[in-house]
Design a protein around this nucleic acid. Structure first.
Lengths: 229, 229
DNA sequence: ACCTGAACACCGTTCAAGT
DNA sequence: ACCTGAACACCGTTCAAGT
């Protein structure tokens, strides 16, 4: 909040002094490289060649550190998925931007679903709200609509976080999905008819397309409701 | 998978021997009473008056234990939200069933979003799929539609988990929301116009109603798409 | 003001030993 | 077969001490 005004102080004076930015950067590197489990204060102190206390001087605790890393990634998405476009397209751009960010940084998913009404999420929420306004959705409905969009994206976030954790390091995605599909088709026919049917589609389905399809369902719902009333 | 066949052995012989069921039960009690952070093996051994090793004899690790507790809660929901009703109503029943379960056991949310294609989630997914079939959604679209519904619900799950963790023990919900709303209205007008506008609606909005509104958006999208094509 | 690093309390998990 | 509980490795966090 209010924050980042500190950024104004000249950035060129690159002593290698510790700073919250440097710590966050190092944390993101570790998270990207080796996942959530690898981000420990010991790993951080090793990478930054410092002591644990030094980090605590800049950052209150691990929670704040994780919030800051997530914020960083999402802020980047929101400035890139700039507006200008037609509202529905802008909503898709935001959503897909988040999707791609989760794809690149799977650990963000876990963070997002734990940080409900805070910073990163507010940015996304605001983005949706503004576009809904531009779309002509009446004010009383904007809250519900923006919530639905946000909820949908957060569901994805969780999936991604968990999925990434699940896929073993070496295996590629399609091989993994094929093995899941194999498990699905061994489920009890009487109890899981739908899942068995859908198993064949799993290996070569496109996550991003499926995500977009669901998003379009919601967008259709939003427009349809409005046209009718 | 395949599992639970062990259940066939007579259950009446209630010695107070340890069993996976008793452990899961105790875990749920602890989780409900004091939240996720309170579930430690030491707390469990104390409550069950046993040693750590005894628990490990019945349960592989903490992950499996958490999965089992989540499974328990969701399985209960799915049997209660029985079918028979009109498909759209059945889908709402499942979704609201999950909603209410999350309300009663907030820690389930965190679990659900970490357990992507496993047991508890498969049950929900199957439930949606069958109702979509009953609704007449063409097979090629069922996968995407069920995914959208599941994603939406999981988003809620994450929110709930985080929200519950955030609300301090003593405070009641509306007071908490009021304080969040107060924070929102102090955000920068230029950066967060939408959130500032929506802040007034926050304190007395009904989560369950809002959840249902979003669900109806998706259901409308599903039906609309189908009617048009 | 900023950093060091040993120390603390507390985890999940293991395992030799009991019955 | 099932249980005990001390021991291990590893966390996040603190804090007296340095510069």
């Amino acid at each position: 909040m209010v924050a980042m005004a500190t950024k104004t102080q000249r950035a060129e004076r690159r002593t290698d002094a510790l700073s919250k930015e440097r710590i966050v950067e190092a944390a993101i590197d570790i998270l990207d490289a080796d996942g959530e489990g690898a981000l420990t204060f010991r790993a951080l102190t090793a990478r930054l060649a410092t002591g644990a206390g030094a980090i605590y001087w800049h950052v209150a605790n691990k929670g704040e550190l994780l919030a800051a890393t997530t914020n960083d990634v999402i802020a980047r998405v929101m400035t890139e998925a700039a507006d200008g476009a037609e509202p529905r397209e802008a909503i898709r751009a935001i959503a897909l931007g988040v999707f791609d960010a989760l794809d690149a940084h799977p650990w963000v998913g876990a963070q997002l679903s734990r940080e409900p009404w805070h910073s990163a999420m507010l940015q996304i929420f605001e983005g949706f709200g503004e576009q809904l306004e531009a779309l002509g959705v009446p004010p009383e409905e904007q809250f519900d609509c923006a919530s639905a969009l946000l909820n949908y994206i957060l569901g994805l976030a969780g999936q991604y976080a968990a999925g990434a954790a699940r896929v073993p390091e070496g295996t590629d995605r399609t091989a993994f999905l094929a093995s899941v599909a194999a498990q699905w088709s061994q489920l009890d026919e009487a109890e899981y008819p739908f899942i068995r049917r859908v198993a064949v589609q799993l290996p070569d389905h496109d996550d991003r397309e499926q995500f977009l399809a669901g998003l379009n369902l919601i967008l259709t719902g939003i427009t349809a409701t409005r046209d009718v009333s």
